[in-house]
Amino acid sequence: MGLTRSPRVPSRLRDFAMQLFELIPITSKEFTQKRWWNSGKVYTEWVLCKDILSKLDDLIGNTSNNNTVHSPGPQIMDDLHSLGQRMLPGFQISEYPSSGTAKQYGKWAEDIRTYVMSMNLLMVSDFILINTNDTDNILNGDWVGMQPRLLYYSGRIYDNVQLQFAKSVHHLVFMRPWNQPRLPTPASRVFHEFIWRLSSQNWCWITNVESAKILLEAIQCHKNDMNYRGWLWFEEELFNRCKEVIREPEGA
């Protein structure tokens, strides 16, 4: 799955990932109980998600030009339906408006981005947990592919996905990976190199109060530790964003 680090997903890799994806529900327990199974499953889902994201970039481009959105084509929508039904079973995909106004195309583009970026963050959350349970000292996850997608994203993320992300970060932080031995573990690398760089200055996609409280508790755990050595990347911005989200309902 190392090929997922390339800017685009080769068509043969996408086809192979789809074959694996279709086999996942019918795979015997002999394989699903293997310790590599979960990471292989999430890598497979990520290959499909990354392929969808790159193809949507070609179709939608800058969201300020949504009045020129072209039809996504059957394969993208089929892949979205297949991946979404498994990862976001409680949500429906917006159908492409074959004949509509610029406003309708813009709404469709926004809804699709919310849907796919929520899946992106869901996979980030899965890989955070996978790395906290790692026993082989191997970093799991295409962080080079997943992280930049969220860095400057200014749209929405579904509440239940925000919650899963917050819980995974909380689990990682309460392991206190900054106190781990000098040799970087996967959990330590995710903590120091990746999670605080999933947004730049605003973390605007953190909007859920419960998620904000969990993240705030996690950051306080790091900040109050006797070995705390300062903020990492955009950790302070997330800290301030969470306080803002928690305050908003009180002042509403």
Results as ranks from 00 to 15, higher is better:
H70M: 14
S118A: 07
L129Q: 11
Y115M: 05
V124Y: 01
N38H: 14
Y152I: 03
K107H: 11
V124I: 15
D136Q: 14
L150C: 07
H70C: 07
I93M: 01
I60K: 03
D111V: 10
G100I: 06
Q104H: 11
Y96T: 06
P148S: 04
H81I: 00
G141D: 03
S118E: 09
L48M: 13
H81T: 06
N137P: 00
N120F: 03
G106Y: 05
T32K: 10
F31G: 12
Q104L: 10
Q33Y: 01
E30P: 07
D136M: 11
Y153I: 04
R113T: 14
S54C: 11
L48P: 05
Q104F: 13
Y153H: 00
M87K: 07
N67G: 05
D136A: 14
S71H: 13
N38S: 14
P74Q: 13
R35M: 10
L121N: 04
M119W: 00
D51M: 08
N131Y: 00
R113S: 09
T135R: 06
R149N: 10
L53T: 08
G145H: 01
L129D: 03
Y152P: 00
G155T: 09
Y158Q: 15
E110Y: 12
L83R: 08
I76K: 03
C49V: 08
L48D: 07
D159F: 11
M77I: 14
L139E: 01
I52E: 04
K34R: 15
